[in-house]
Write a protein that binds this DNA or RNA. Structure first.
Length: 471
RNA sequence: GGCGCCGUCGCCAAGUGGUAAGGCAGAGGUCUGCAAAACCUCCACCCCCGGUUCAAAUCCGGGCGGCGCCUCCA
């Protein structure tokens, strides 16, 4: 049974899908005006872990939508500056997103719609039509607005106290005329040189909030959907407004659960493009770190706590992951015959602890703790010769299951399979070193080992032979 | 000004009433040609001050410090 924190109720609620065994989930994806940074990806990695937990640990079917926002002020400005067509401009960043998503081991979701797809624009127009009909809209200066005063329930998610709002706080950053500062734009008036679609009266382009509601409702079926997820900064206004327009249009609750991922900080400040303190996956790789370590780091803290990114903690993540993959290599090397029932018992304990932690509002830190405790117990058994080939399948199966949820071990191992020195050369040098070691020419043997280490390949000798690994 | 979150070992990080998981780094040891890996041992009065309780990292009150939201944001 999964307990999941729900922003709507401010409590951990027990989660199960409302209909059948299928979880219908929507994640607010990236606005594709620039390459996503690792702060953006913290949200996507955490949502990926939620998805994997629901799918692989709890056995639900997933119908998961994550969108690309490919039309807004920033994408339009970026395309104009680059002298490119909006579609071509945003294509670039969709491509880099997919590249980074693959590097971070994000599972493919069922649907990745983009706002400017014809079918989605049509869904948005329909939504505006429904809101027109039910009297929740007005038009001003060629834009269509949502009238907050028509929805008494407005503000339930963010629980903002409008009486106490700071006089100087930003209000109404849009340059459009509104009746009430809290009203938001559904459909923005066409402007010269900007893309516009003649699909709503008057022609224009979608407001940010509209697209998510329309695509969620179109692709996930009748509301309420099960889970709506995104970064914590989207609670207000984005998600509040999605709720308003969706519920006003359908008369039904929009989403049963709202899941929000806390910020990634850097130097104790929010990582954001506007502060200029962002790192992308290529930035991290250029510094000699691997995407798997980024994923591990993002997983090592609870998703509802701020996580301060430092290069030191990324180094620690690399080391922790190495401990895990070294262990897996040791398990693979077990050749002793037979089996020991207490191994299976210990593995079961670990699996249970892992499952309980994940179901406790995705307590990934505790789940990793359970894994490391199991690793120590099993390493100990390997040293003592108290594990046999008969035990290995159960161990492998357990770690496969852990990793279907965390998605980090197989990612690491896949990276390991692309060493900086060709495998044939490594193997040839190991043979060469083996020969000189037999002659007790340790100076040459150490030379070979040092040379390889300098090129990023580490050798480890043991009774069973020499194994190599990527640094 | 209003609202919210957070403060646990040198670093990262679980733990929300029963006496502090785990990882990284460090010290000593076992093993090893050496190294690495692995194992064993060691390493925390939980920001401060009050209170409640048989019992508090955990609950309550008050400080101090940090982060965020209040219509660009993942």
């Amino acid at each position: 049974m999964m307990r999941l924190y729900n922003t709507l109720t401010h409590a951990e609620d027990t989660f199960a899908p409302a209909v059948d065994n299928t979880v219908r989930m929507y994640t607010c994806g990236l606005t594709v005006y620039a390459r996503g940074h690792i702060g953006n990806f913290r949200t996507f990695v955490c949502v990926d872990v939620l998805r994997r937990t629901l799918k692989h640990l709890l056995g639900y079917r997933m119908l998961h939508v994550m969108n690309f926002t490919d039309v807004d002020d920033r994408t339009i400005a970026g395309a104009q500056k680059a002298g490119m067509d909006l579609r071509a401009y945003t294509d670039q960043y969709i491509a880099t997103f997919l590249e980074d998503a693959r590097a971070l081991g994000l599972e493919e979701v069922e649907e990745m719609p983009r706002a400017t797809d014809e079918v989605n624009l049509r869904a948005m127009a329909d939504l505006v039509g429904a809101l027109d009909k039910s009297g929740h809209t007005y038009r001003s200066d060629g834009s269509v607005y949502f009238k907050i005063s028509s929805l008494p329930d407005y503000g339930r998610l963010a629980r903002l106290d409008h009486e106490g709002m700071k006089p100087g706080a930003r209000v109404d950053s849009d340059n459009y005329a509104k009746e009430d500062a809290r009203d938001f734009v559904l459909w923005k008036a066409a402007k010269d040189g900007e893309p516009a679609w003649d699909i709503v009266d008057p022609p224009g382009r979608p407001g940010w909030h509209l697209e998510c509601s329309a695509m969620a409702l179109r692709l996930l079926g009748g509301p309420p959907i099960d889970i709506h997820a995104g970064g914590i900064d989207l609670i207000f206004p984005h998600h509040e407004n999605e709720i308003a327009q969706s519920e006003a249009a359908t008369g039904k609750p929009f989403s049963r659960f709202w899941v929000h991922v806390e910020y990634l900080l850097v130097d104790d400040r929010k990582m954001s493009k506007s502060l200029g303190n962002t790192y992308t996956i290529p930035d991290v790789v250029a510094r000699g770190y691997r995407p798997s370590a980024v994923r591990y780091l993002l997983l090592s803290a609870h998703y509802r706590k701020q996580l301060n990114f430092t290069w030191a903690s990324l180094t620690q993540a690399e080391e922790s992951l190495t401990r895990l993959t070294d262990f897996l290599a040791r398990v693979d090397a077990v050749t002793r015959q037979g089996s020991h029932p207490e191994i299976a018992e210990r593995v079961d304990e670990g699996r249970k602890a892992f499952a309980e932690a994940m179901q406790d509002d995705l307590n990934t830190a505790a789940a990793l703790g359970a894994i490391f405790e199991l690793v120590r117990a099993l390493n100990s058994a390997i040293d003592a010769g108290e594990i046999g080939a008969g035990d290995v399948p159960a161990v492998r199966d357990a770690f496969d299951r852990f990793d279907r949820v965390l998605g980090v071990l197989s990612l690491r191992r896949a990276e390991d399979e692309q060493p900086p020195v060709p495998v044939e050369e490594v193997e040839r040098l190991i043979e060469e070193r083996h020969a000189v070691r037999r002659r007790r020419d340790f100076a040459t043997a150490d030379q070979i080992r040092n040379d390889l280490a300098a090129r990023g390949v580490l050798l480890e000798d043991s009774a069973a032979g020499t194994r190599w690994k990527r640094k």
